[in-house]
Design a protein around this nucleic acid. Structure first.
Lengths: 211, 211
DNA sequence: CAAATTTTTGACCGATTGGACAAACGTTAG
DNA sequence: CTAACGTTTGTCCAATCGGTCAAAAATTTG
């Protein structure tokens, strides 16, 4: 009994089945959004009956909520790691690389997040204006310090962070379009390395010709 | 009779009501996606009854299809305008500016498109691999010419186009997040001008400090 | 073993979904 | 005015939705 949000005590089966459900729900929610997904779809993807699924998560929203909570943890980890200790340009470069790796390795998580934001972030708005804003403001201050020290060019730190998010997550969220445009030759596995090379050059030197 | 896809003959009322429906559907589809939207929602937003709406568009899909067809026309217009005649750096700069203006002035269209791509582009996949790929390949060749002529730095033209799409559309698709992070002070109407300034600098010079 | 507990399932519920249809209502041309 | 045509609506339908419930099946505990 007492499986819902309150009781942390879980049997072995409960832990396993909940993971199975969350895995299936990630697949379904990330491609159809919350309202576009059905419990039946998730149950089928998890290989169990609908009532059985509802035994582990009482409501459809509970699954989505659990998924979003976990997501935000791992999703902001790369930004948290952005530190004041190393060389600024190196720090930024490895932040971009980490974000691009996440787009490659966790595209469903990226799309789940994108779906939520696209639809107005009805379920995580407080987190955006709270925890997220605090973290970004903090890191923007770090970047501003680098600018004052002359380590990187003076520009808007917030929009710099946005541009890193946008360019990297694009390869997860718009993957279908990227592969369609690149075609069968260049749209293969190498596309992430091409993207990494391009982004490094863009954020380092821009497009102005050398000389 | 014969209002569907076949008969182009339309009365004055039909033209007006169809526009009314498409306007309402754009609002609904862009925030909930196709499967997450209901005919009732669209009908209510258009100020008419559901059967009345179905008199003008026989199926829910027909509305979405009409909307997507129109969208792609206007959505690719800025890229089509990218021309070989002017100064390369100026051309790219004004392309970025136009795309950012579209994110500002037509955010619903941007989100409608993003929703479709996020969900695997089930309805426009042929267009992506066909018309879109052709256009991008064509413009990539133009950009490559500029690189060979030493007018802009050598890099990957396809990923350059992706990065312009990603950074500009971000301000429409992730608008909620952008405003939440910027806060009430900097998240106002001025955010698009800040973004324009930042993107111009990024694509021109990158982040490397001057000197 | 047997009792207690946890897990699974089939049947079922009211609400909502996309859509059909005929009747009522407006509009327009002769 | 009136007949023809275009528009609008109330009613209805089968399918699907999220979710309940009691009973069966499996597992754990003593």
């Amino acid at each position: 009994m007492n499986i819902g949000t309150e009781a942390p005590r879980r049997t072995r089966i409960q832990q396993e089945k909940r993971e199975l459900i969350l895995e299936a729900a990630l697949e379904v929610f990330s491609t159809h959004g919350f309202r576009g997904s059905t419990i039946d779809q998730i149950a089928e993807a998890a290989g169990m009956s609908k009532p059985n699924l509802l035994y582990y998560f009482r409501r459809k929203e509970d699954i989505h909520e659990t998924l979003m909570e976990r997501l935000l943890e791992t999703w902001l980890a790369p930004l948290r790691e952005l530190d004041d200790i190393g060389d600024p340009m190196t720090e930024l470069r490895s932040y971009i690389r980490r974000k691009l790796e996440m787009a490659r390795d966790f595209p469903r998580e990226s799309r789940l997040f994108a779906n939520e934001i696209l639809q107005g972030a009805p379920r995580i708005m407080p987190l955006l204006a709270g925890e997220l804003k605090t973290l970004v403001d903090e890191k923007a201050a770090v970047i501003k310090g680098w600018m004052r020290a002359g380590k990187i060019a003076r520009t808007d730190p917030w929009h710099l962070i946005f541009s890193i998010w946008a360019t990297t997550q694009h390869y997860a969220d718009f993957d279908v379009q990227v592969r369609a445009v690149l075609g069968p030759n260049r749209g293969g596995d190498g596309r992430f390395e091409d993207a990494a090379r391009f982004l490094e050059q863009l954020f380092l030197d821009g497009l102005k010709p050398k000389g």
